[in-house]
Design a protein around this nucleic acid. Structure first.
Lengths: 153, 153
DNA sequence: CAATTTAGTTATACATCATACCTATTATGA
DNA sequence: TCATAATAGGTATGATGTATAACTAAATTG
């Protein structure tokens, strides 16, 4: 006699209990929330996460090369080109030839770039303050400490 | 008289001090490390993060619909189709018609699907144990607690 | 000075993610 | 009852993100 047909009723609520055991799962879901909020925060400045990151690093390290920037952002050099193209087209940065090495560019922020960067950083600061309102300073510091440990820094 | 040319020397070391002030930055960098390791862990099973997540959720919630799964994974329904297609093609799951609603599919894992899921989950557990070796259980629990708070769960 | 390396770029491929729109089916309400 | 709306799944498409190979121009090395 064949076994009775398996129930194929749809669960009323989807359980993620197995995945919840993994820290990586929680990290991804939490970061999704952060990134969605960050994207919305940067939208008024017409910046995406990558263009924002590049702009901030260029402002903090004026004169750095594309290779240095790609390494700092942990992306491949070819993928940085379009990002730099966009920032340059919007006249937020300049590609300046390095006299001592005519292969390389020194990336320099323009005045407009520095201004936009300052405003964007302030907006992101406000965005994080709002998003992490439930986290006191100790927890926040502990979190950064732990995350730094994960990435081996 | 024009101002003297600005220095355009390249910094010897790229500073990310501004970005380091942001928790989101640390979250992204840490998750990058986790994801790279996870991808490598899942490679022997020919699973990616998305196909793995879908498979685990189907095994934990047999009979759920694609709409339910998409909601649980926080992705759009059209993007789930190719994931389900792949799992079905590999005979890890079945699309079973729901008799009470002929529009919907009940997603059911096959025996092979359940086996692969178990093996993959075990491998991911080992991967996390290795990756988070510097984190004691208390820190790990605190981290999950904090991350859950961020995503508002 | 030939051979190698490096900086930036182009082309390309693939994965991820979002939106608009289509069909078949089910639910709703005049 | 029957027209309308809503829902499940799917197709098509575009924007974005990421990785690799290969090219040029310039610098380095032996």
């Amino acid at each position: 006699m064949p076994a009775p047909e398996q129930d194929i009723e749809q669960p009323t609520r989807v359980s993620d209990e197995t995945l919840r055991r993994f820290l990586g799962y929680h990290m991804k879901r939490a970061f999704n929330v952060v990134q969605a909020d960050l994207t919305a925060t940067l939208k008024p400045f017409d910046l995406r996460m990558l263009t924002y990151t590049a702009l901030v690093l260029i402002c903090d390290n004026p004169g750095l090369s594309q290779t240095q920037l790609a390494a700092a952002m942990d992306i491949e050099r070819p993928n940085l080109v379009v990002i730099i193209d966009e920032l340059e087209r919007r006249e937020l940065i300049n590609r300046t030839r390095v006299p001592t090495d005519r292969r390389a560019y020194a990336l320099i922020p323009t005045l407009a770039g520095k201004r936009l960067c300052e405003q964007a950083v302030a907006a992101v600061q406000a965005h994080e303050a709002k998003l992490f309102v439930g986290l006191d300073d100790d927890m926040r510091a502990a979190m950064i400490e732990t995350l730094s440990k994960v990435r081996g820094t």
